[in-house]
């Protein structure tokens, strides 16, 4: 079980646990049997709905019961008012608070929003605020980020407004709260690509300068954090942004980066006596771009970086040896 501390079960503790659970097991099995029987008979009324509520309260991971619940709701839908749907959303939220990583519950919540009477924009806007709260509780919850993208795309569809700049600011806020939030950095890459694809960045040159400055600040804030380095590698190597830079600008940006990274690395050496692993890994990427993409005639230090990495990052020694052979 994920993250549950192992307990020593003495005979006495086990006896007490089983005594306590005996009645719970009987009740649970009886209820479970009853609901599955109702399901088998396709009974759809307020009582069968209530039975699924009772069962899901005990076991929110029981996917078949979520399925049955949806079948019941679909059949009862003509007689269900908005209060019911608000209640259903509240019910899934209660379950998500207990089990924030259970796929079935997220799935049921999406279904509720889609089947809410007329599925108005205002419930999706409310949902966007709710997912913001969920990501405050667990800023890396991957269901939460996935869910946010889905909500945003629906809000955009229903409102006809593009939320890219709002969502871009959202990632800035999340990163500023915690620079190690890779989920936010990752989402930033998605949004920038969208903004470029839709030509929503009027002054690309100043956008690139601002973003470069933002990355540099982050590097100086926490040079140990891999999130920033991974984002930097995206920025210089993978993003469509570089297509909007002249080769002179691209080249001088890489040179400036090399100087900064060497500076950060020297700081680390004087502080801890060791090179910074991510500095060396990023310098390798920069050299690769300079040599293989920009065809610049530079004095390569790749071998030196890899030799150092083998010593300071021995877990990945074989990868570095492979990379040396590939030089």
């Amino acid at each position: 079980m994920h993250g549950v501390t192992r307990r020593e079960w003495t005979k006495e503790l086990l006896r007490k646990k089983r005594e306590k659970e005996r009645q719970e097991i009987l009740d649970y099995r009886e209820l479970s049997d009853e609901v599955l029987e109702l399901k088998n008979k396709r009974v759809a009324n307020k009582d069968s709905l209530l039975k699924t509520t009772q069962l899901l309260n005990i076991n929110p991971e029981f996917n078949t019961i979520w399925n049955y619940r949806r079948e019941i709701i679909k059949l009862l839908a003509p007689s269900l008012d908005q209060t019911f749907w608000d209640g259903e959303l509240a019910f899934t939220m209660d379950k998500l608070k207990v089990r924030p990583k259970v796929y079935w519950i997220w799935n049921h919540r999406v279904w509720c929003l889609e089947h809410y009477p007329n599925s108005p924009l205002k419930i999706w806007l409310k949902e966007l605020a709710i997912v913001g709260k969920l990501l405050e509780m667990d800023a890396r919850n991957f269901h939460g980020w996935h869910y946010r993208r889905y909500i945003v795309s629906t809000v955009e569809r229903l409102s006809g407004n593009c939320l890219n700049s709002q969502e871009f600011e959202y990632t800035t806020a999340k990163i500023n709260q915690n620079i190690s939030n890779f989920s936010a950095w990752f989402q930033r890459t998605n949004i920038i690509e969208h903004m470029l694809a839709r030509d929503q960045i009027a002054d690309k040159e100043s956008f690139i300068d601002d973003e470069f400055q933002y990355i540099k600040n982050a590097m100086f804030t926490d040079a140990e954090d891999q999130s920033v380095w991974t984002y930097l590698i995206w920025f210089i190597k993978e993003s469509a942004l570089k297509e909007h830079m002249t080769s002179e600008k691209y080249s001088s940006m890489l040179k400036e980066l090399t100087e900064i990274i060497e500076l950060i690395n020297d700081d680390d050496i004087s502080f801890s006596g060791k090179d910074n692993i991510w500095c060396l890994k990023t310098l390798l990427v920069i050299e690769f771009i300079q040599k293989d993409i920009l065809k610049e005639d530079i004095k390569s230090k790749s071998r030196e970086y890899l030799d150092k990495l083998i010593i300071i990052d021995p877990l990945r020694k074989n990868r570095y040896l492979y990379q040396i052979r590939a030089l």
Partner: peptide
């Protein structure tokens, strides 16, 4: 082989329940 085998082996073996058997997600978990 891009993973350090001895270190990973040690981690997995430390996640065993020495009393009742079975392996957990992290050392000392259920």
């Amino acid at each position: 082989d891009w993973i350090d085998f001895p270190k990973l082996t040690e981690f997995i073996l430390h996640c065993q329940d020495p009393k009742n058997g079975g392996i957990s997600d992290r050392p000392d978990n259920e």
